[in-house]
Design a protein around this nucleic acid. Structure first.
Lengths: 152, 152
DNA sequence: TATTGTTATACTCTATAACTATA
DNA sequence: TATAGTTATAGAGTATAACAATA
């Protein structure tokens, strides 16, 4: 919602939370997600759907399960997501060539242009957030550090 | 679940996702949360409950609404959370002195020691994650940067 | 009128198990 | 026997609206 009216009370002592990467990651991520909603909810796209589109766009022909594994989702969650993206004419299922159990996922023509619109909005927001950092070097460092912290 | 068996396929091209702070923040945060569950689910504590305890421990006497505002939660979500923490004998509601509508929240005796156990576990994990960084300077920089990115 | 705690509600995410058709 | 897609389901988490008691 990106709501300025309810501020965090500065007189509250956050104690240990202040020193926890886990807590700060959560706060930062919530901020990104709520802004993402502000920017893209009119298009019916959530962060999770955006990630699926981004993977399919760069890796046409992947199966649902392969996309789920790449994103760390469960197979079962893909069904409703791909159903929706298919109804929106963004992605299409095609029968896989070598395996009649699985579908290969591809972008539709409309999906291609839709993804460009979406990417532009998302990148604009990213750049406005990146402007809070010192320089591109700091951004690279942040991305690298977040990647290191993403591995278990 | 911190499961090593299902790896992210390295042959998948993540495209724009790789350059997005929002996506990397999500991946890093998911990793912290799943490890938090591994460490603390036997004690019945989620990250959200831990945050509430941490605030009450450092700010005894805050009302439910004040804690909710500090953490960015909705008032209504506090009810079940505080109910649970009260049943676990960690936090107690006391009638507020000046306002008969509200409760003041305090740690119980058991809650004090419980929180120490909890904090030890969480800090151990934090330190093992911080060990992936170069030094304490880098950790400070990360915490500061995440704070900057948390503001809307 | 406004606010606190509460309830009810609903919607999204996520996780699990089981089914079917294929492999 | 194992896997892909699917379905059903259940549990979190989150957000909104409304109500009673109190300010």
């Amino acid at each position: 919602m990106a709501d300025d009216t309810k501020k965090t009370d500065p007189s509250v002592d956050f104690g240990i939370l202040n020193s926890l990467m886990g807590y700060r990651l959560r706060r930062a991520q919530m901020n990104f997600f709520s802004k993402f909603s502000d920017l893209c909810s009119d298009l019916g796209i959530s962060p999770g759907l955006f990630a699926i589109i981004a993977i399919v766009e760069r890796n046409p022909g992947l199966t649902q399960t392969a996309v789920a594994q790449a994103l760390g989702n469960d197979r079962s969650a893909m069904v409703a997501a791909v159903d929706k993206l298919e109804q929106m004419d963004i992605i299409e299922r095609r029968p896989a060539k070598n395996d009649r159990r699985s579908y290969a996922l591809f972008m539709t023509k409309h999906g291609q242009t839709f993804f460009k619109t979406l990417s532009t909005r998302v990148m604009e927001h990213e750049q406005s957030m990146a402007a809070r950092l010192k320089d591109d070097k700091e951004l690279d460092w942040l991305l690298k550090t977040l990647d290191i912290l993403s591995k278990n």
